[in-house]
Simulated scan of single mutants.
Amino acid sequence: MTNSLVDSIVSKIHSTRHRLVYEFAGAGSLALAWLHSQGGSSRTVLEATDRYASLSTIELLGKTPDRFVDSNIAAAMATRAYQRGLRLGAGETPIIGIGCTATIATDYNKRGDHGCRIAVLDKTSLHQYSINFEKGARNRIEEETLVSKIVLNGLAKSSGIECVLPLALMKKERVVATNTQSSDPIENLLSGNIDIVKVRSDGSMSEHSTLNGLAFLSGAFNPLHVGHSELAKAASHMLRRNVLFDLSIQNADKGQISHSEICSLLCQFQWPHEVVLTREPLFAQKALYFPNAVFVVGYDTALRILQNKYYGGDNAKMLSFLSSFKAAGCRFLVAGRHWEGSYRTVCDLSVPKGFKELFEELPESMFRVDTSSSAIRQIIESSPVSESPKG
């Protein structure tokens, strides 16, 4: 009966639009096996990672926890999973992140309790499940099965499926379930509730009001290409600090871009790249949120920064920007670029007196890539679309 019910629940999960990233440690592998036991699991499971070594869990969390089997640890794992799902799912479908940390029977007697802590996170809610097992009442596979049932029940609940697997608990056992509201950092940014979202190389996100003393490569990154990556790498080497990619959700032509567009753009960035999301497209605004920053730009961008026509023809406005930018402790690192028939560098810029120190050259010997996102888009748009095979 249980096997048929598992099959029924898994089938219903696969029929929903929800997509899953699953992080588990100590137990919970059977839940993944159940999901993969039926066709359609590729529609549900984006990624699943068995954090069996303690160091693997530590790397996921970014710290060494006091206790591994802990509700806060499960919630942190679920958060990392959810944020990873936003990145992998490109914002097109609802995401669920699950974190499971457990300790179960093994080939020696453990001193502490057996049990699990499970967290299931979606866009609006964090559901948590906690239980300590009656020690010695079950063997290893039976405890593994119980953990996996709780995981599958949690996934079903967050997928809008009402039926659940019976747990057959011992008399003194009970699952403590809690539910709290959660929020999506990207949604918070879009709604104006926060100013900055930092997306780490593992896909995890954090909210900030300012970030001080960092280096940024700003752009639309549509698409991200090798020139961006190599420029960030060269700038990082010269500055001796990590360079983050700065992506504004406020597009100069289309206005604010959508959640799905943001996630689609983020999918391009892989380890070790880190990204910051803001609503600020202009360097004057960026300087307020990123004091003492170095902004890595190409010659063409630096040229526009110094042209009056981008300030309504008012030279005083341009000088005012440079003064406020300097006062914020910010400066530009300028990469040369092939421009109007020749290779141009900082030396070709007409920088007003008193502001030359704001424009530092990234030597050609360290970086030169003559390509651009707009050129790549033109190639993509002009290429014939091949017909997909039927079947």
Rank of each mutant, 00 (worst) to 15 (best):
S37K: 03
V45W: 14
Y52N: 04
D50Q: 12
L20H: 03
L55F: 06
A27G: 00
W34A: 06
S42F: 13
Y52K: 08
S56Y: 00
L32Q: 07
D66F: 14
V69R: 05
A25N: 06
S56V: 12
S15G: 00
A74D: 00
S29D: 00
T44I: 04
L35D: 12
Y22K: 01
H36E: 10
G28S: 03
S71V: 10
A27R: 01
S56N: 04
M77G: 07
S41P: 02
A74I: 06
F68R: 14
G26P: 03
G40K: 05
G28T: 04
I73A: 06
D50P: 10
Y52G: 02
H36R: 14
M77Y: 13
T16Q: 08
V45I: 14
L20I: 10
A75D: 06
T44A: 08
P65W: 14
S71M: 05
L32I: 11
A31F: 08
A25D: 05
L46Q: 04
S37L: 02
E47N: 12
H18I: 05
T49V: 15
S29K: 01
S42H: 09
A33P: 02
R67W: 11
D50F: 13
K63T: 11
A75H: 08
A25H: 10
E59P: 06
E47L: 13
S71G: 04
G39N: 08
L35G: 08
E59L: 13
T44Y: 06
A27H: 00
T57Y: 02
A31T: 07
L61I: 07
A33F: 02
H18T: 06
G28F: 03
M77I: 11
T44R: 09
L61N: 01
G28N: 02
T16A: 12
S37A: 09
L55D: 15
A48W: 08
S42M: 08
D50Y: 14
G26L: 03
L60M: 09
P65C: 11
G28K: 01
D66H: 15
F24A: 01
L60I: 05
L35H: 13
E23P: 10
P65V: 11
M77D: 10
R19M: 10
R51M: 13
L55M: 13
L55Y: 09
R19F: 03
H36S: 14
A25K: 01
S37R: 06
G28R: 03
R43A: 12
M77A: 13
F68T: 03
F24K: 02
S42K: 14
A25W: 00
T49L: 11
L35M: 15
S15M: 10
A25T: 06
S42W: 12
D50K: 08
S29G: 06
R19A: 07
Y52S: 03
S41F: 10
L20C: 03
I58T: 15
K63H: 09
W34Q: 13
A76Y: 11
A33K: 14
T49P: 02
S42C: 13
A31P: 09
L35K: 07
A27V: 00
I58F: 12
S54C: 05
H36F: 09
S15A: 12
L35R: 13
L30M: 07
T49M: 12
R17I: 04
F24R: 02
G62L: 05
G39P: 03
D66V: 15
G39S: 07
T57V: 12
G26M: 00
S42P: 01
F24M: 01
D70R: 01
S54Y: 10
A31Y: 02
T49F: 14
S56M: 10
S41E: 05
S37P: 05
L30N: 04
R51T: 10
I73T: 11
